[in-house]
Amino acid sequence: MPAELAEKTDRYENLLADAVAEAEIAAQPGTPLADAAEECFEMATSYLEDGRHFREEDDLVNALASFSYGHAWLDAGARVGLFSVPTEGHLFTV
């Protein structure tokens, strides 16, 4: 089980890091939607940082949870049009 958890944690960290790199705010600057997009993006990057901290502490369960939550913020934002994201590939479900 620990090897599977480590592999899954690695996979989700990479997924979130790649998604953060690809997501671009699509909303017009200075609008409430842009503010919401910025908040979602900040949550995603914060969860990425948190997950990396948990990983350093050998807390793979919380690291995996953080990476998963971070990706959920971006994926949900992409689904409602806050972000411009690639439609091909595995990074987003839009």
Score class of each variant (00 low, 15 high):
A44G: 07
E13R: 14
S46T: 12
A17C: 08
R55C: 12
F54Q: 03
E49I: 15
T93F: 07
V20E: 00
F83G: 01
V80W: 06
L64R: 09
A34C: 05
Y47I: 03
A36E: 06
Y69Q: 13
L60Q: 03
V94P: 08
A37C: 14
D59S: 05
E88I: 03
H90W: 13
A36S: 06
T93Y: 07
F67N: 02
F92V: 04
D58I: 01
A3R: 03
G81C: 09
A63Y: 02
I25K: 03
L91Q: 10
V61F: 09
F83M: 08
E38Q: 12
A78F: 13
L60E: 07
T45A: 06
A19I: 01
E49F: 15
A65Y: 09
F41W: 14
A76L: 13
Y69P: 07
G70V: 10
F92D: 01
E7N: 11
T45D: 04
Q28K: 13
L5T: 12
E39F: 14
I25M: 05
E88V: 07
L33H: 08
P2T: 09
V61I: 07
E7D: 15
D35C: 01
G30V: 02
F54C: 10
A19T: 01
L33Y: 09
G77M: 04
E57R: 05
R55V: 10
S66F: 12
R55F: 14
D10A: 07
N62F: 12
H53T: 14
S46H: 03
C40I: 00
E56Q: 13
S68R: 05
E42Q: 15
F92I: 01
G81E: 04
S68N: 08
E38H: 10
Y69S: 13
T9N: 07
P32H: 02
P32R: 00
T87H: 14
V80A: 01
E7H: 12
A21Q: 07
L15A: 12
F67P: 00
S66V: 02
A27G: 01
A3W: 11
Y12W: 11
G70P: 04
L74S: 05
P86Y: 08
D59E: 13
D18E: 08
L33M: 06
A27E: 10
Y12R: 08
R79Y: 14
L74G: 14
Y47P: 02
Q28H: 11
H90V: 15
T87K: 11
G77Q: 03
L16D: 04
A34I: 07
D50R: 04
F41G: 12
A76W: 06
C40T: 02
Y47K: 06
S68I: 13
R11G: 01
T45W: 02
A21W: 02
E22W: 01
L33P: 00
